Amino acid sequence: MRSPRELAGNPESWPGGTVAEPGAEAVRQISARLADAIAEREWSLRQAAAASGVNRQAIANLLAGASWPDVATVARLGAALGVGLWPDGNRTDRTLEH
């Protein structure tokens, strides 16, 4: 399975831009919000890991778009940082083809 970053039109801009594949776009939004929250607190990945109970490498992989995070990981990170990391869910500009 390809990583979210590999599904981006321009992988080098990750997590910038948008991604056509809905799942990868959700991960991109989570990654961008996570990066902003960590930067705002001036935390290291080790501090984010200690506060959330999520492995530091798992956080690094999420930030890099190299992994598909599970619900528990996103919830733990959001709770530790005190921010909502979930995508907005108000996306009406694309539809899935079945």
Rank of each mutant, 00 (worst) to 15 (best):
A32F: 08
Q57W: 01
V71E: 12
T92V: 10
R56S: 12
R91Q: 15
N10D: 15
N61E: 11
A26N: 11
S13Q: 14
L63C: 03
N61T: 08
P87S: 05
T95E: 11
R5Q: 06
E21Y: 11
R28I: 01
W14G: 01
I38G: 00
N61K: 12
L96I: 10
T18L: 08
R41P: 02
S3Q: 03
G23C: 09
G53P: 00
E42V: 07
N61R: 11
S13A: 15
W14S: 00
A32G: 05
L81H: 01
A58V: 12
E6F: 14
A35C: 10
A64N: 03
Q47E: 12
P22W: 10
V71P: 04
G53F: 01
S44G: 06
Q29A: 08
R46E: 14
L63V: 00
T18Q: 12
D36T: 15
P4V: 10
G84A: 14
E25V: 15
R94L: 15
A72I: 15
V19C: 06
L34A: 13
S13M: 13
L63E: 06
L85T: 07
A72N: 11
V19K: 03
R5Y: 02
E25A: 14
G23W: 07
D70Y: 06
V83W: 11
G9W: 01
A49K: 00
N90V: 14
A66W: 09
N10W: 14
G89L: 12
P87F: 02
I38W: 05
Q57K: 07
R46V: 13
G89V: 12
A49H: 03
A75L: 12
D88I: 04
V54R: 05
